[in-house]
Design a protein around this nucleic acid. Sequence first.
DNA 1: TCTGGGGTCCTAGGACCC
DNA 2: TCTGGGGTCCTAGGACCC
Length: 350
Amino acid sequence: MDAFFAAIEERDHPELKGLPLVVGADPAQGKGRGVVSTANYAARQYGIHSALPISQAWRFSEQARHRGRPAAVFLRVNYRRYREVSERIMALVRRYASLVEEAGIDEVYLDLSQTESFGRAAALCRQLKQEIQEQEKITASVGIGPNKLVAKIASDFQKPDGLTVVTPEEAEIFLEPLPVRKIPGIGPKTEKRLAREGIRLVRDLKQFSPEELRLRFGKWGAELYERVRGRHESPLIEAYEPKSLGEQETFGEDTRDLNLIFDRLLDMCGHVLKRLRAAGFQTFRTVVVTVRFADFATHSRSHTLTAASRSLDILRFTAMKLLMPFLDHRENPRHKLLRLIGVRVEKMER
DNA sequence: TCTGGGGTCCTAGGACCC
DNA sequence: TCTGGGGTCCTAGGACCC
């Protein structure tokens, strides 16, 4: 889905039509913490995009305003609403393919191999796009390819409201001129690392043998060798078992208020356990506590119980025990303020 | 300039077992 | 005194994705 959260808000607030729209944290007049979830295309013209600090988005909006452009409208994230819309769209999608993999709230893979033709697959997708448009009044971009990797990159190729078909014969040529960052798995760090060596395009990466890539990137290097050639074997996965479940929370301001910190941690434990049960799990065995200090240094401590537990008391006790060292002056000699705490459970059983 | 929240996967060292 | 090889589990950190 194109600019999914923003598209829903635009649709539901016709008075905002044509205005730059930013869905994310509260900008608090430029003093807010947090990031942009989604910016609509008008807001993107101001340089605002997903994951941008909301304070910076506010600044960009102010700058635009001083140039005589409309200020951006900032809205909080309404996940429940977006989830509802997502579920309706996914239901629609399921009418087009028997094998479907939901890849997040606004992305989905369809196995259309039964069409046995890229042309027929494209026709189906045009119809699907139209149905989504009619039913939900928002646009989607579709990529059709010989595998999930190529389909995903193709779906990003013409946005918004795009449809890009890449046949198996075209795949390598299609990928070659693209920036390496387009390959899923190459993020900001790897992009920088490659750029330092003058490697910017997929084409540049293709000069390396599998051995050379393995040497540089380990196991992932071998996989990378395949990906830059448009090769990717991973099947569609209908549903998989969650491996962990947790919550984290950034405080409104950095703090060392122990009452507040303990209160939040114990509260989060309760919520995590509730969600664990709601997800159909009975027990957990590993507890992870995460702390982020004011300087953004992030650390975690984990403990695996000898036996699986379903007890809130044990979760709370374990989480508190894991948190303590971070508050101790030996671990935190300069008494840094806390920015975030989180708790997560693993090794869950049904 | 300041950096959310929900996750997954990989790496690497150490403990431990056979 | 110096000491193999294979495997699993635990812990911590990091990169990445939506």
